[in-house]
């Protein structure tokens, strides 16, 4: 069994009183709780903190933990020979067990009915997992493999963490932040309790071209100055393949050209839209012929794109 230093995790001395332990826990929870923290490592960190607090706030569990002695974090260790019998467990084996599961199985943990002595119906644990999928997969629907390490009881009622792989279907219609529930795919229930559920949080991997907002998509549409001025029909990629978009004459940079229904599908309604945002692209290097044409245009045009500067700035004279 690997040692975890719960005092070090909470940043308190081994003789800290209950109040100091609670304060240290709260301070760390404010920082790392996955519901309030933006720290991507917050969830793992909070699990550690919550595990440490669950043991240290409970006098019996803390005493049992203290009797294990002090070791380096991650070090393999064996509890003292009489440790198991002292805490009411007859034939504990320590090789293949997580420290938190061992402590959860003691005294206070048993009231959850999860141990081999429990008989109360207990629902299984719910799991929450984030599935990162591509925009193409969100568009078409996809199957994802979810890797979870889940606690399960063996035939003798002992807790073990076992790796499990779930295949989950993500139907088309999901977008960033969408939540899905997979009934019965969480932890096993005990003594007739229902199995837990698996909750999926969908995250979209950023796409090179399309930027999602809800079910709408935005795409930069670079246009040559003459295309924007004269109008043009241009090929535009969509998630369903290329379409042809008519760009009206006199299209200004920043104009949004809407391709209705070409965004992400929704589960039961009409799909989102695709917006092509016009950008005026200038040739980075002009050929001789291009330069001459632009010079002709410059000489012949009366267009003043800054005419509003004069009317909108009041000079103090």
């Amino acid at each position: 069994m690997k040692y975890k230093d719960y005092y070090e995790i909470l940043g308190v001395p081994r003789d800290a009183d209950d109040d100091a332990i609670k304060k240290a826990y709260r301070k760390l929870a404010h920082k790392y709780h996955p519901d309030v923290s933006k720290d991507p490592a917050g969830e793992e960190k909070f699990k550690e903190i919550a595990e440490a607090y669950a043991t240290l706030k409970d006098a019996d569990k803390r005493a049992a933990y203290d009797r294990l002695g002090s070791h380096s974090p991650g070090q393999d260790f064996q509890p003292p020979p009489d440790w198991g019998t002292q805490y009411g467990e007859q034939d504990l084996r320590f090789e293949d067990i997580d420290l938190s599961d061992l402590l959860a199985g003691l005294a206070g943990g048993r009231q959850r009915g999860a141990g081999r002595r429990g008989t109360m119906a207990m629902p299984g644990e719910d799991y929450e997992v984030t599935a990162r999928i591509s925009l193409e997969d969100a568009y078409a629907g996809t199957l994802v493999d979810l890797n979870l390490s889940v606690p399960e009881y063996d035939a003798n009622g002992r807790l073990h963490r076992v790796p499990r792989v779930f295949k989950a279907r993500i139907p088309k219609g999901a977008t960033h932040g969408q939540r899905l529930r997979l009934r019965g795919k969480g932890g096993k229930g005990f003594h007739g309790g229902r199995d837990g559920d698996l909750y999926l949080n969908i995250e979209l991997v950023p796409h090179a071209l399309f930027r999602p907002s809800g079910h709408d998509l935005y795409l930069d549409l670079p246009l040559a100055p003459w295309e924007a001025a004269l109008g043009a029909t241009v090929a535009v990629p969509t998630l369903a393949g290329t379409v042809h978009l008519k760009v009206p004459a006199g299209t200004a940079a920043g104009s949004k050209l809407r391709l209705s229904g070409r965004g992400l599908p929704t589960p039961h309604g009409k799909p989102g839209d695709l917006y092509a945002i016009a950008q005026i692209a200038v040739p980075p290097k002009l050929s001789e012929a291009e330069r001459e044409l632009f010079q002709k245009l410059a000489a012949g045009s009366t267009f003043d794109p800054r005419s509003h500067f004069n009317s909108e700035v009041k000079h103090g004279d």
Binding site: L143, V165, P171, R183
Partner: peptide, 12 residues
């Protein structure tokens, strides 16, 4: 151990 895919429910 892989299990059969499950149809999820939308939470919307």
């Amino acid at each position: 151990m892989a299990t059969e895919p499950v149809e999820p429910a939308w939470l919307n």
